[in-house]
Nucleic acid binder design. Structure first.
Lengths: 230, 230
DNA sequence: AGAGTTTGTTACGCTTTTGTGACAATAAGG
DNA sequence: CCTTATTGTCACAAAAGCGTAACAAACTCT
């Protein structure tokens, strides 16, 4: 995996250093700034693949700077992950509104951070995941965002697509509802486990309409399994 | 589904007791200490699967102790979840550097705690034992949650699966009904011992339907033994 | 703003699972 | 061979787990 360049904008020394360290360990190259002005200079020098941006910054705030970036065509495609100490929903919504690609609430584990960075890079097309997952006559194309069975295309909702994507990349293994929530919805989501059942039901219905009956299997007392077998 | 051993280090009595109680209910075995020194002794005695560590401790602080642990190869792989009171945000960040695996801010819900513990154990790979247990032509796959004999799949209930899992991982040894209840059902479950007999019967029936007669053997006066021999 | 989708939650009914008591069968020991 | 302790088997009721529909909230897209 080639190295990516990540711009860290964070005014607190301890946190900034920690971030750089974590990134380094995960084989990301990083450049760091303590405020928006400094960051802007680095940006002019070299366009990074991703920006880790603190919400609160001296001078121009992180959000404000991000908003400006997203308006300029040169920068608007750089993915931004916002960092904030407060886990308030309001901030999150505002952050995502201005076009941030993800949002991390401090404190976060290094592993989670890295995972999110990868996810964002993947989404923005910088990391090429496997574009097509093929299982039997099922094909899920992440680039085209299409799910086909044979040559027929299935109409699935975003959640169904993600669920299907997870299943197809983790076939034959049983997952509990909790695990599915973690993996498909995200770790810090607060959703009833029974909701999974409903989504499974919807997925099954779509699959049934195309003649596939037993792809999603119930393992009573444990969870669900996606498998071509049996 | 063997129980995990969790070391709780917390100086406030009420919280520590609450933790132990919650863990117990979730079928985790726990040992508790009130300070780092005491915890170290317990650690020397037996390596736990996870440590729940209060940030603030009398004497050596939780962070300091954690840092030391992470430097010693014997201990460095034990996952640590730090517990902190609200309003120590900054400190928590610093805790990341020492390699804690997660954080919990007091007060937290038992549900959340258990969820995080599971997540950490899952990440660190401890929750996944050996995926496949193979004994002769019997295969039990915990990931796929399948039990096969030759290439035929056996339809077993959750309890039967757990029982079979225990038997296959503890073949050739005799277990009393009490032991089986403890190991397969859980320590704090109160069930009649004769119930075991019924489950054994059900298991035998399924095995018989697939031509295996004497896998589960009665040792009169003691209990049952699972064995391929005889 | 409004129509149509998507998504999460809840409630209800059905099926499977599970624990238990009753009784039959079996083993042990004099 | 008879008595007693132990185990095997069955049937049943309670509980748990799951599928499904219906509803409401949130989100999209024009």
């Amino acid at each position: 995996m080639s190295s990516f360049n990540i711009l860290v904008v964070e005014d607190e020394d301890a946190i900034r250093e920690m971030l750089v360290m974590v990134l380094d360990q995960a084989n990301f190259a990083s450049i760091a700034a303590t405020d928006a002005e400094e960051a802007q200079k680095l940006l002019d020098d070299k366009i990074p693949d991703l920006i880790l941006l603190d919400w609160m910054l001296p001078g121009i705030s992180g959000v404000e700077w991000a908003r400006r970036l997203k308006k300029e065509s040169v920068y608007k495609d750089i993915p931004i992950i916002l960092l904030t100490a407060r886990g308030e929903e309001e901030d999150k919504i505002r952050g995502l509104e201005i076009g941030a690609d993800d949002y991390m609430t401090k404190p976060f584990s290094p592993k989670e951070l890295i995972a999110r960075i990868r996810a964002v890079l993947r989404r923005s097309g910088k990391i090429q995941g496997q574009a097509q997952i093929i299982l039997g006559d099922l094909t899920l194309d992440t680039e085209q965002h299409r799910l086909t069975i044979g040559n027929k295309q299935l109409e699935v909702s975003p959640t169904e697509f993600r669920l299907m994507h997870f299943f197809m990349t983790h076939a034959d293994k049983v997952y509990t509802r909790t695990q599915l929530l973690d993996q498909v919805w995200g770790r810090n989501v607060y959703i009833e486990e029974r909701t999974i059942d409903v989504h499974i039901r919807r997925l099954r219905k779509i699959l049934e309409e195309h003649g596939r009956e037993d792809l999603v299997q119930t393992v009573r007392g444990f969870g669900y399994r996606f498998s071509l077998a049996e």
